[in-house]
Simulated scan of single mutants.
Amino acid sequence: MTHLPAADIRIDEALVSELLRSGAPALAHHAPVASGEGFDAVMYRVGPEHAVRLPRRAHAADLIEIEQRWLPVLSEGIATQTPVALLAGKACAEFPRPWSIVPWIEGETVASMPVAERSGLAVGLARFVGDFQRAAPASAPANAYRGVPLQNRDHDVRGYLQTAGISQSDELLEIWEQALRAPVWNGPALWLHGDLHPGNLIARDGVLTGVIDFGDLTAGDPATDIATAWLTLNREDRDLFFEAIEPSYDLDEPLLERAQGWALLMSVAILSAAPDNPDLVGIARHTIAQLVAEERGLF
C-alpha cells in the first residue's frame, strides 16, 4: 500500500456531489469517480469532460487559489492542455476551502509509460517549457522550494543523501556540488511549473497532451523546469528536447548544471518522502541513473 501524508479533512463522493449540487448544478447528475490523490490534492472525475480538484491538506488551499488566479492567464498561447479552473469554488459550510472544476484531460500519466517509449514527448515537452517560461511580475507567487538559488536547498539535499539509502550517494554529492558551483541565475524571474516530473505530464498516443498540478507555480531560475529533461527522458530523447526548445535565454553550461542539480534534488526528495510510492520511486531511480551516467563536463 502506498502511503501519503494523512488528509486533514473528509473528502468523498458524497461531499463532491454536495458541492456540485450547490455550486455547479449542471454537473450534479454525474456520479463523482475518484481519479487520483496526491500529497496535497484529490481529484474526482465528473462526467466525460470535467473533474473536481480539492485540497486534502490545509496548506494546499493556498495552492488551489494560486492555480485559480494564475493559470487562466498563463495558459494563453500554450498548445498543451492545462487544468484551468472552469469554476473557482469558494469555501463554504460543506467544505471550508477553495476547490475547482477543471477540464478532464484524456490520456495516461507519462510516469506509467516505459522510458524507452517517450521519444514522442520530447518536442512537445520542450515547446511547453519554452512557451511557459515568460517573464513574471513581482506579484508572482513566492515558493521557498522552487526557482531559488540551489544553495538555499543545500542542507535538505545533504540530509536526503544521508538518510534515503541511495547507493550512488557519493557520485550524486559530486554532481550536487558541481551544480552549487555554477553561477546563480541573474536574469529575470521566469514563470515555472515547479514540479515538472512525469507524474504531472499527460500523454495520449505517445504525444504530450497535458500538464497538470500547478500547485508549486512560482517564478525564478528556469533551470528548475529544464530539470524535466533528466526527470522524464533518456539521453537520446534529451537531445531531441534540447534541439527543439526555444527559450528566451541561453542554455549555457551553468544553467544546465543547475538543471541537473534540480533534477537531483527532486529525485532524492522523492526517495526520502515517498519511498513506498512505486511511480514516484521509478521517476527518482530513472533520474539518478541518468545523472550518474552523464559525462561530467559534458556541457
Score class of each variant (00 low, 15 high):
133 Q>Y: 03
9 I>K: 07
229 A>Y: 08
56 R>F: 12
30 H>M: 04
104 W>D: 01
169 S>F: 08
29 H>G: 00
158 R>E: 07
255 L>A: 03
44 Y>A: 11
238 R>N: 05
185 W>S: 09
12 D>N: 06
48 P>M: 10
246 E>H: 12
213 D>F: 10
26 A>P: 00
80 T>R: 01
45 R>T: 14
25 P>E: 05
82 T>A: 14
75 S>M: 07
92 C>Q: 09
282 G>D: 00
283 I>D: 00
202 I>C: 02
141 P>D: 08
38 G>Q: 14
47 G>V: 13
62 D>V: 13
166 I>L: 13
197 H>F: 12
42 V>G: 14
133 Q>I: 05
252 D>G: 10
296 R>F: 07
51 A>C: 13
119 S>L: 01
154 D>H: 13
261 G>N: 13
186 N>E: 11
214 F>S: 11
221 D>Y: 14
14 A>H: 02
116 A>G: 06
113 M>C: 07
162 Q>I: 00
24 A>D: 02
177 E>Q: 13
4 L>P: 03
149 P>G: 08
192 L>F: 03
146 R>F: 06
60 A>V: 09
84 V>G: 07
6 A>M: 02
264 L>A: 13
259 A>V: 09
28 A>Y: 07
142 A>V: 12
33 V>T: 11
277 N>H: 15
150 L>Q: 06
60 A>G: 09
49 E>Y: 10
123 V>D: 03
131 D>V: 01
19 L>I: 05
187 G>Q: 07
8 D>I: 02
188 P>G: 04
127 R>L: 06
157 V>E: 07
230 W>N: 09
197 H>N: 14
213 D>K: 13
150 L>M: 04
148 V>M: 09
100 S>Y: 03
184 V>I: 01
252 D>H: 05
44 Y>V: 12
